[in-house]
Amino acid sequence: MRFPAPLKAGDRIGVTSPSSGVDADLLPRLEFAVEVVETRGYEVVVGECMDGAGHISAPAADRARELTAMLTDPDIRAVVPPWGGELAIDLLPLLDWDAIRDAEPTWVVGFSDMSTIITPLTLLTGVATIHGNNLMDTPYVTPKGLLSWLDIAALPTGSTFTQSSPGVHRSSGFDDYRDHPDAYEFTLDRDGRWIRLDGDGDVDVSGRLIGGCVEALCNLMGTRFGDTAAIPGDQLIYLEASGDDAATICRNLHGMRLAGFFDRAAAVLIGRTRAPGIASLSQYDAVVDALGCLGVPLVADVECGHVPPFLPLVNGALGRVVHNATESTVIQTLD
């Protein structure tokens, strides 16, 4: 596994939209987020593929060209999108994978539809990526126990860091960036800790981290872009549901299991979600129905999904998950 060089003051960070762009009335939030990154001492370069008038920021060829250019530019040390979207998958056959693999590794950050990009990047190139807050989420103050992707990307290779569940999350809704473009404090109004879905007992398990958004990754099964066999040894697989109902998620997880996605799983972490159940199947039930047969710990309500706050996970990092009556932590080593 290869890890990009740590970010340092003066480094350049690229912003592009591999999926959805930014509406004109949300540009003040984008500008505020860029300013927050610049206050860390970085130079921010905003690309041309940023149009938010439609469901994609630019034609697929243009988006692929811009992302490839940023990932092969030695002066750009990290790439972050404003947010996810719907159709990042159309970039996969258009990216210059050989050029990206041969280039100096660059940090790529994001979640949601960006899983369609960052997870294949790790699987196909052996370069670590960060499943963490997108640019529009970056201004939020990080709760105690968690780190921002900017903190992680500044760590040298070989570093070990620990994140712990803050025990609180946002119960509903999101900040309206049109009315509050400078929002920087999460509304964390509900208590909640991780839970084990497959039974009782403490969890202490290790492996390399890999995962992302279920609705994005399920479409990569049976292709080289979703082949977890590229990562040797035990794996800590993390997944999160964006919004699909429990029956759809259950079906997707079954398909991913049948495709071999979980063949090396030592545990599965499930992100906290507000996605609905159906009358006879909850989101928890969906996970157990599809993955209970794996015989590994299934730990749910981890802060790695669409419900704030965010616990960034590094695809490709060595991870250790500890969950018991007094502790819920993820320890990651960039090695």
Rank of each mutant, 00 (worst) to 15 (best):
P4W: 02
P181I: 02
D191W: 13
G226L: 07
P18A: 03
T162D: 01
G199A: 08
G295V: 09
A286C: 03
R208N: 00
P181W: 03
W149I: 04
R190H: 12
P139D: 09
E327R: 14
E31V: 11
D200H: 13
N315L: 02
A266S: 15
D200F: 14
M256F: 02
D263E: 01
T72W: 07
V80C: 05
W194I: 04
D198A: 09
P59G: 05
R251H: 13
A61N: 09
A229H: 10
P166G: 05
M221R: 14
D182K: 06
D191E: 14
T162G: 00
K144R: 15
A5G: 07
F310N: 08
V314I: 15
D202I: 03
V330I: 04
L94K: 14
G233S: 06
D289S: 13
T125P: 02
A154C: 06
L291A: 01
D102A: 15
A267M: 07
R63W: 13
T329F: 05
T162H: 01
A286H: 06
P312T: 11
A279Y: 10
L291D: 00
N133R: 07
L95G: 01
P139R: 10
S112C: 06
D96F: 04
A216F: 13
Q163D: 06
D102I: 06
P232R: 04
T125S: 01
T39E: 14
W83S: 05
V330Q: 01
L87V: 14
T142I: 11
R29I: 10
G158D: 03
A247Q: 15
F262L: 09
R12A: 12
G233P: 12
G292H: 13
D23R: 15
L150G: 06
F186E: 07
T119L: 08
R101T: 15
D191G: 12
D191K: 14
L269T: 03
C304P: 02
D23W: 12
D234L: 04
L92F: 13
D62S: 05
L155K: 01
P232C: 06
V268G: 08
A60C: 05
N134G: 07
P93Q: 10
L311C: 13
A317M: 02
G85C: 11
W83F: 07
N324R: 04
I210Y: 11
I249E: 03
R65N: 09
S19D: 04
C293R: 14
E327V: 15
A265T: 03
S17H: 12
F310I: 00
H180T: 13
P232K: 03
L155C: 10
D204N: 06
V321P: 04
D102L: 10
G110Q: 11
T142N: 07
